[in-house]
Design a protein around this nucleic acid. Structure first.
Lengths: 254, 254
DNA sequence: CCATCTTTGTGCACGCGTTCACAAAGACAT
DNA sequence: ATGTCTTTGTGAACGCGTGCACAAAGATGG
């Protein structure tokens, strides 16, 4: 989902369906928890419950990786942790840059989950000179001018964009030009990237709107059918607090 | 995607496919931008480009809402903005509580996108007494003890969880018990909720892992086939920096 | 009023993902 | 060694989502 513009022959390469890939981290998390409790083996039923999925789906997912289970017993936890980690590419170190150190960027920098799973913050970058040198999460923020050099020097291939919406596409272009081929975008904009570059989007505003839709459905059955619609270029008068910020102001950086 | 445990007859009620619902906010954003530039009408082709989707898909999506276009001309921007807003339930005001005011919770509280689209932060809640009363984004943090009262007094039906992973399920249970029926979960845990409650999950760690997978695929074709696998309960020795935090430490609250 | 041109709305086919249900595989007891 | 019992791995059916391609609708110009 949300792969920028690519026609995505991406995963087809060696089989594993995209939907399965998206669930592997879920399984990995559940397995890691079991591993910490020193549980030696786990059945597809148990693991599926822990990961919140159907057991048949889990078995089919694992079947794409190979036959790692033992019939009548289940899966070896440690071994499976290793296999999934390897499949996801988590056995190697991924240097990551975060561009846009506002509220959200800082929160991301402080996120423990980064370091814990093969991801290492190579640099924090922001266009605001006032931030340059200031440490966030123990890492000094560097100026945007340094972006290309940082990418190249550290061999960064994954970039996180947490800038305001307006800055996202330019930043994206620079990241790609400098060699980044995977982007995690928190800015509320559609990014256009060349083929071969993966983009994943995290958009809080959209998630909330989807929830609102379902919420309305649940609560709505009563208020429904409020007569005909205005039909003549309606709305936009009520809730005058729309503000001058237009659409999505973005979490981050003021 | 990521609907807690429900068998989801959710959207079936009146037709609109889930995939379409997920795209409506995207269209709305693009339309709002056009509206600000006072563009009167837009074709499916143009709007689709702006939203980053296929034009046929966009037309089909809109067809679920009704026939709001004019052949030979396109769609009336203002009218469509209103229709989609109404369909998403954005013409009404949704009070929202954020539970867990750590790094991420604070970033979310400062997020402009909240207020701009029918969402209003009714309260910020945290279990840490040291935070109680301290203003974040201009709103004083309230103690978790007040949670049930706040939910009921404000008629809150949407809750955002940005606590550490361990606190998420208990918080979720309390929210649901108090009347919340939609939850946006930022904590890296699978939440279990009763039927009728919607859960959407935003998990940064998972997004990164999916990117890493594709990245490995792209770069990998060379390093592939590194002989046989250890097979005997491999890994876990290298990268000793795994830390004692186990899996997902969660962004938020220290 | 008619012809032409643009753009919508949708029938249809295809492919992916999910789920069921079961045979094969192996552990374990006797 | 043999039978029973558990659990995996997967063939097959189904349903949803996507994209093509085109007919219908309406605007626009003569």
């Amino acid at each position: 989902m949300a792969t920028g513009r690519t026609h995505r022959p991406a995963t087809r390469s060696r089989g594993i369906p995209e939907a399965t890939v998206a669930r592997l981290p879920l399984y990995l998390r559940a397995l890691t928890a079991l591993s910490e409790r020193s549980v030696p083996t786990v059945s597809s039923e148990e693991l599926a419950a822990a990961a919140g999925v159907n057991s048949a789906k889990l078995r089919k997912d694992f079947s794409y990786l190979g036959s790692y289970g033992t019939r009548g017993v289940g899966y070896d936890v440690e071994y499976l942790v290793y296999q999934i980690s390897r499949e996801l590419g988590l056995t190697q170190d991924w240097p990551v840059v975060i561009v846009g150190i506002g509220n959200l960027g800082a929160a991301l920098a402080n996120y423990g989950g980064f370091a814990s799973r093969g991801f290492r913050i190579a640099a924090l970058i922001d266009a605001d000179p006032a931030l340059t040198g200031k440490p966030v999460a123990g890492i000094p923020v560097q100026h945007a001018d340094e972006l290309e050099r940082i990418i190249r020097d550290n061999g960064v291939s994954i970039g996180v964009i947490s800038t305001p919406a307006g800055a996202a596409q330019p930043v994206c272009d620079r990241l790609v030009a400098a060699g980044v081929t995977s982007i995690l975008n928190f800015a509320p904009t559609v990014l256009t990237v060349p083929d071969g570059v993966d983009v994943r989007k995290v958009d809080l505003s959209i998630e909330l709107q989807i929830l609102a839709f379902h919420e309305q459905r649940k609560a709505g059955e009563e208020t429904v059918g409020e007569g005909a619609l205005p039909r003549t270029a309606a709305g936009r008068d009520e809730s005058a607090d729309q503000g001058p910020d237009g659409d999505m102001p973005a979490v981050m950086q003021a």
